[in-house]
């Protein structure tokens, strides 16, 4: 991954500058150690904040409350958090290009796994608390209710991505790994669709997500087009 970043350097001025900057020491730590000892633990802790908030709300700790219908609250908030993490994951690549932070990608796997974690929690709340483990109803919902079909498909697609997120699987799959992980674009679209479709009438918030998704995917499309047509000598892109 770092390889492709270095190769990007001639095209992207800021990237080149930051690649040089990143070799400088900060707090006496190299980039590697900085990520391992500071940034990754910090992002991990921050990613647990929604879980802590949901827990406090459920138990009424620290003045938080899950309201009159805790089941709906948990279900909705877990789902939205999962969607948020998918979007944060999708922001990593543009951020590393635009803000010249190539090493941000080291955080992407963790963010993606948190998206999977919150999506699985969302599904668990739905099965356990909303439907009281009535598997017959779960099955009927998945088959008959298009918005649940779409949401469930998104969850299923997240599974192979989570399973192949290890270094070993990345090495084993090579280029196919990148291709496989492009599924995240479909997952994000399905997630937004699922959110949009379950609304009775007020679709303003789902539409905001849709607009953000259009930006994130549009950025990639434009970049891919430019690389294909404006820089013909550079064909190989490895970033997903």
């Amino acid at each position: 991954m770092t390889d492709s970043v270095t190769r990007d350097a001639p095209v992207l001025g800021p990237s080149a500058r930051s690649a040089a900057a990143s070799s400088r020491l900060f707090l006496g730590l190299t980039v590697d150690r900085r990520y391992r000892l500071l940034y990754k633990p910090a992002v991990f802790a921050a990613s647990l904040v929604p879980l802590a908030w949901l827990t406090c709300s459920l138990f009424g700790w620290l003045g938080f409350s899950a309201g009159v219908d805790p089941v709906k609250f948990l279900e909705l908030e877990c789902g939205k958090t999962a969607l948020d993490f998918i979007f944060i994951t999708l922001m990593v690549t543009p951020a590393h290009h635009l803000a010249a932070l190539p090493h941000l990608r080291r955080l992407r796997r963790m963010l993606g796994l948190f998206a999977f974690f919150y999506a699985a929690l969302h599904f668990t709340v739905y099965v356990a608390l909303d439907l009281d483990f009535n598997w017959h109803m779960v099955g009927a919902d998945i088959v008959k209710r298009p918005y649940i079909t779409v949401g469930f498909s998104a969850l299923l697609m997240l599974i192979p991505l989570a399973v192949t997120s290890t270094n070993r699987m990345m090495r084993r799959l090579g280029r196919r790994w990148t291709k496989l992980h492009r599924l995240v674009y479909v997952i994000a679209a399905f997630g937004v669709w699922h959110y949009y479709w379950q609304e009775k009438i007020d679709v303003r918030e789902p539409l905001l997500y849709a607009a953000a998704l259009a930006l994130l995917l549009g950025y990639r499309a434009v970049r891919a087009w430019r690389q294909k047509h404006l820089v013909p000598q550079r064909v190989q892109r490895t970033s997903a």
């Binding site: 608390l129 909303d130 009281d132 483990f133 298009p146």
Partner: peptide
């Protein structure tokens, strides 16, 4: 008669114990 997006065959009683709301 279901709503286009969800079944109306069951309901969740607000305030009922967890795991027994349906």
């Amino acid at each position: 008669v279901p709503h286009p997006n969800w079944s109306q065959a069951t309901e969740r009683r607000i305030g009922a114990p967890f795991f027994h709301q349906r």
